[in-house]
Computed example of a mutant assay.
Amino acid sequence: MSARWLDDEQWDGGGQRLRRKRHKPQGRRRLADLTAQPSADQGDDIIRRLVHLGHLTEVVAELKSGKEATAYVARGPSGTLLLKIYRDLQARSFKDDSVYREGQVILDRRAAKAMQQRTRRGLDMLQSGWVLAEYAHLWTLWHAGLNVPEPLAGPFPVDYAETVPAVLMRLIGTEDHVAPRLSDVRLSPAQAQSAWAQALSGMADLLRLGYVHGDYSTYNLLWWEDTVTIIDFPQLATRQNPNFQALLRRDAESLATSFLKHGLQISGDQTLRDVQRRALGPAPTPRVTLP
């Protein structure tokens, strides 16, 4: 009788434990593996899957590596896109997302227990949930008319779930000149005022929809053709989260602090008041997605 796998352990046919299956967390992927021919043995399994699904044709270059994921410039049937691939949860420098997940209701008690105990299955579910949340938030915000990258898989979960642990979105900028973060550019006084007003409006638009970004600063705002685009949404929290107000205040303070580089000295308290006032105003025009 052949051996079988159960809960990451190997057992023989008589029920005797042989050894524990080892799983090495997947961290940052090598660009050489992502750019290899999808059919080659050295190619990456995620890239093969995305090519097979028709989302991707090739990876061009690595753009940026962060705490949770690495972003790449890629090409697909819809043109140039941004490919964001998350590391396994165990391989991230940022691992504790509990402050953002508070208030979420998980009806499957076994699943909730696995995530709480951070078993292998639980970590896999946390990983998938983090990626699927970014897609879901992107679609909600895109349809609501906010300046966010257009998601390129979906809009239904059954479609974008097939791309986990990757997120596909329209590239802001061009293949040769990708939009920089606001934290990395030099602005004229007039541009700084415009960027500030747009950043406040973006945060207010989120608040109007019942969201707080959770990591809102010039590091997660792009600047392209004098327009601010908001990025990075997996940690987005709703009003059901008991930390909502604290996260909102933290975002206001982070935004104000990060704009000091551009010569604007505005307190976090004033920023929060301005955002709350703007949230009472008119909403952006919703986008209509053609079938």
Rank of each mutant, 00 (worst) to 15 (best):
A3Y: 07
W5Q: 12
W11A: 02
Q16I: 07
K24W: 13
K24A: 11
P25R: 12
R30I: 03
D33H: 11
D41R: 15
D41L: 15
D41Q: 13
D45T: 13
I47V: 15
R48V: 02
R49T: 12
L50M: 08
T57W: 07
V60S: 05
V60M: 06
E62V: 13
G66P: 03
E68L: 01
A69M: 04
T70P: 05
G76I: 13
S78N: 10
T80H: 11
Y86Q: 13
R87I: 05
Q90Y: 01
A91K: 05
R92K: 13
R92L: 08
K95W: 03
D96Q: 04
I106A: 02
D108C: 04
R109Y: 08
Q117R: 15
T119F: 01
R120W: 13
R120Y: 13
G122H: 09
L123E: 14
M125Y: 11
W130E: 14
V131G: 01
W142E: 01
A144G: 00
L146P: 03
N147R: 13
N147C: 07
P149E: 09
E150A: 09
P151Q: 06
A153P: 00
V158G: 04
M169T: 11
L171H: 05
L182Y: 12
V185I: 11
L187K: 06
S188C: 10
A190R: 14
S194V: 12
S194N: 15
A197W: 04
A197M: 06
A204T: 00
L207Q: 14
R208L: 03
Y211G: 01
H213S: 00
H213W: 06
Y216I: 02
Y219D: 15
L221Y: 09
P234F: 10
T238E: 08
F244W: 05
Q245I: 08
A246I: 06
L248V: 07
R249Q: 14
A256P: 03
H262P: 02
Q265L: 09
D269G: 07
T271N: 01
L272M: 09
L272E: 14
P284L: 01
P284H: 04
R287A: 00
V288C: 00
V288H: 04
L290R: 02
